[in-house]
Design a protein around this nucleic acid. Sequence first.
DNA 1: TGAATTATCCAAAGCGCTTTGGATTTGAAT
DNA 2: ATTCAAATCCAAAGCGCTTTGGATAATTCA
Lengths: 369, 369
Amino acid sequence: MINVLFIGNIQSGLNGSVTAVREKTVNLKRLSEHLGLSQTTVSRALNGFPEVSEKTRQKVRDAADKFNYHPSPSASSLATGKAGIIGHVVPVSEHRMINPHFSDFLAGASDAYAKAGYDLLIRAAQEDQEADIYRDFVSRNRVDGVVVHGPRVDETRIQLLQSIGMPFVVHGRAGGEEHSYSWLDVDNRSAIEKLTNYLIDQGHRRIALINGLEIMNFAHRRRLGYEAALSDHGIGIDPDLISSQDMNEPYGYEMTIAKLDMSDPPTAFIYSSVLSAMGGMRAANVRGLLPGQDISLATFDDKLSFLQANGSGNSAPYMTSVSSSIQDAGRRVGEMLMDQISNPGAPPACELWKTDLLIGKTTGRPPTS
Amino acid sequence: MINVLFIGNIQSGLNGSVTAVREKTVNLKRLSEHLGLSQTTVSRALNGFPEVSEKTRQKVRDAADKFNYHPSPSASSLATGKAGIIGHVVPVSEHRMINPHFSDFLAGASDAYAKAGYDLLIRAAQEDQEADIYRDFVSRNRVDGVVVHGPRVDETRIQLLQSIGMPFVVHGRAGGEEHSYSWLDVDNRSAIEKLTNYLIDQGHRRIALINGLEIMNFAHRRRLGYEAALSDHGIGIDPDLISSQDMNEPYGYEMTIAKLDMSDPPTAFIYSSVLSAMGGMRAANVRGLLPGQDISLATFDDKLSFLQANGSGNSAPYMTSVSSSIQDAGRRVGEMLMDQISNPGAPPACELWKTDLLIGKTTGRPPTS
DNA sequence: TGAATTATCCAAAGCGCTTTGGATTTGAAT
DNA sequence: ATTCAAATCCAAAGCGCTTTGGATAATTCA
């Protein structure tokens, strides 16, 4: 593999070691000169245009391979207006977005991007800068599209992106005009409703909901599902049984402990994430309560990969849960975005994913007091 | 905020909705025309060159703000050869690199990049493509530097990057020529040695090590620390007490169960990650063993953010551990890379971080049989 | 006051690619 | 043998920025 045609002097660094090799990397011009063809023809040969004969194309390809030629992204981006990059803007606020959910999503999405020849770009930003960043992205086309993470109940990014004409797919969705943009969401409402109904069927009447931040659309919908199930069974809603915060282990622990300390404690808990559910398990353990027997714990499960065994993917389904793989969601969102970019005229695509209810060992009938 | 000077026709999409607004975004040329200055002067004013008077500079800045002008990354990248991007190449192999450790690292690194005006780029790749990707990165300068993740015992990327002259910082380190490149590592060996010594001091003689994959350099070093502590106390090394695999919850669970089933089971367990340690806790729980009493569990703790409480950062130090924040490591690695890029002549920087030993509630003296 | 600086600003040449609008050659059709 | 269309290929014009090498105007110095 040769990737230089001419090698300049080797320069010595301060400490005497070789620090830089001035390489004249092979570019279109040099390659075409070497082939005795015009840049036009070489470019077209490489990009599969029909104007060039198969024989020439093959010769060009061989030479490109031999010299390990790859077109410069900045140059082709400048010429075509396409960046070959998908942007993810993540807030660096206290509400950490870069967490295990996010990384699993990325794992899926980056896979889809790689297949289509795109790179993934992450820009950390203060929350109030987000709009400017999107404007920046589009006006200088640093990226060809973006993924909107964690839509709020009161969401503004979607309108902005629509107005500046930046292709995007929302992971989740906002309220309102749901068919004016592309999104992929799990049916959060019915998922939690299903789970709540199951617990009610088991005989529970005091069910706690350890929810995510309810300014987030998904958490809001889960709350609605929870309330719907309770109402359907004529069970009143006790605000003291509900809490809403960033989902992590200590939060799950603290909330569970706090609710267990109530004078009329819940017999069952629903967690919005396995992260907080793990805290719940710890709390039960500390209190000497056996899940499934003394207390019922259920969770929304994003099938986070670090909880799955390697290879076979046989997870550890020991908790009762409604589940949907966030990694699969990431992959699909990535594909949808690729589609949208390569096919700008197409109408928005929307997917609502159902969840699987899985009965594990951590729920059961409430203890007969 | 205005970011167009001329607005073209509004075009209707297939479904009748507005799909694209043809915007003539304001570029250097237009901005300089508007100001009655040359592109040279405007560019220099914006980039802080001394050749332009303060008065002019201010006028230019005001206009740039007014029209929300940002230079095109591809154009300036083409002109300067700088991309303003840091690359992270992650393998998409069975050994998942995109996991909670990685995302915490990213959270720190992206912060450092953002402060310096850099973006973060992730490229998913087959393991055998990595070399080509680096070559591609450097020859087309898609990125200005890269972070090498998860160095192996038998590491090849470092040499490659050195030979092609791409700035990089290794998170971890390889064996051999340690002072020829920049790295940041925690002292894995002494960390696990410390932890093992503590358990031995508590009276344990059969200590299991649930390690990461030992083709990874960090896991190899941890193994060495474990063996050193045992040897120092005249304790033989039982290969059956050691296992080495990707770190996740089910793995920690399975290994713990398996070792507890031995005829001469260990009285203490050391986990290479809280991920597998959580599996260990579950296993103890399932077996009815109370950590700290019936069994001792200790872990290497990367201080993963989803295990930390929000705000105050008061984690849940219930497990005995040696710890070092991987997020801080990411931030520091990011800073080191920024330094290296802005100061190419500087000698390599190396940092070896010590870990904190934290005595939690999950260890104690071995049960007197 | 005239000469030598110094401070400001500019025209134009790239950076490496894509793409428009021809030019030339080839092959088939008459 | 001509004619015409198809197949091949190319020169040159951008894309939007930085930067070199001057030019011009404003200051300073003797």
